[in-house]
């Protein structure tokens, strides 16, 4: 047959939910920009061993402090597109490898804190009463301890390494997960389909996993992006203070810290890793805001 059946009027008037979602996603500039930038940085991190022009640890002492190529200086060379640092290490390569550290720490710390916070929040919101009181107490206690200070103290006592930083941050920043998941669970819990599931005799575990969790997923994703950005900024601050990732690892925070002494003569040394951090955190935040806007009910932007 040359022509199929024509779509009915209702099919034309009512786009499918998927089509609506697609339209919203592609109409949201922040979400698109954030995702594109984040994907670029993730590619940088994943492909670092193959796209780095030099070894990020290689020190060439007669090639110290070459400025990036857009500078007007006789030292500039195309071999070092972003120049070299105070030890003659290629800045572009260090930037690529540094993306790995930021993303690894941000993602792992977010995962750990997400598990802890979601567990506390969902349990508190679902059971309410005494359980909720205890959960609230735990959250309040955690909130009253200054994150940066406790993280620095613990890292300095345990000894700093990548794993230690991930665990310390993961164990510290679950508070927002818990607070948001708690109130989201409370809202969903009072809805009819949960009561229906209870009436048909579903186990608590099943109700939480199949009825509640899918319906608070959008909140979870938004908090996850916020906390991932938070963890990345905290790692950078810890490394900047000398209590996070240790030299010679190319952490962006550490790169700013190492270049601090030279920033008055070579400002680009702190501008480049700082801008990289800024872009990474900005892209994650834009994505989070985008997901929140796109999944929000109509008219609530």
């Amino acid at each position: 047959m040359a022509t199929g059946t024509l779509p009915t009027a209702t099919e034309i008037l009512e786009p499918s939910p998927t089509a609506l979602l697609r339209r919203r996603v592609f109409g949201h500039a922040g979400l698109i920009i954030g995702t594109v930038v984040l994907v670029i940085i993730m590619l940088m991190a994943l492909l670092a061993p193959w796209i780095s022009p030099h070894d990020p640890y290689d020190q060439v002492l007669d090639r110290k402090l070459i400025p990036p190529i857009w500078f007007d200086s006789p030292k500039v060379t195309t071999e070092h597109l972003l120049g070299t640092d105070q030890l003659g290490r290629d800045y572009l390569s260090r930037l690529f490898w540094g993306a790995r550290i930021s993303l690894l720490i941000g993602f792992s710390a977010m995962l750990i804190s997400g598990l802890i916070g979601t567990a506390i929040g969902v349990v508190a919101g679902y059971f309410g009463g005494r359980v909720d009181m205890i959960a609230n107490f735990i959250i309040t206690t955690r909130l009253s301890m200054p994150v940066v200070l406790v993280a620095i103290a613990v890292v300095s006592l345990v000894g700093s390494s990548l794993t230690v930083v991930i665990w310390v941050l993961g164990l510290l920043i679950w508070d927002r997960f818990a607070v948001v998941m708690r109130s989201a669970t409370m809202q969903v819990r009072s809805l009819d389909f949960v009561t229906a599931a209870e009436a048909t005799g579903c186990s608590t575990a099943r109700i939480v996993l199949t009825e509640i969790l899918p319906n608070i997923m959008n909140h979870l994703i938004v908090v996850a992006t916020i906390e991932m950005a938070h963890a990345i900024l905290l790692e950078a601050a810890l490394s900047f203070l000398g209590l996070g990732v240790q030299p010679p690892e190319p952490s962006w925070g550490l790169m700013v810290s190492e270049a601090k002494g030279m920033m008055f003569f070579d400002g680009w040394l702190i501008a480049i890793p700082g801008a990289a951090l800024f872009l990474l955190v900005l892209s994650i935040n834009l994505m989070g805001d985008g997901v929140r806007d796109v999944t929000a009910p109509d008219g609530r932007n």
Binding site: G30, A229, L233, A236, A237, F240, G253, V256, K260, M263, F264, G267, I270, A271, G274, L277, F278, L279, V281, L282, N285, L286, D289
Partner: peptide
């Protein structure tokens, strides 16, 4: 607001220092 939230505080501090101080 969006830009402010993404700026690492130590980097912002150093940048302020560089421009206003030096």
């Amino acid at each position: 607001a969006v830009i402010g939230q993404a700026m690492p505080s130590f980097w912002f501090a150093l940048t302020l220092m560089l421009w206003f101080g030096i």
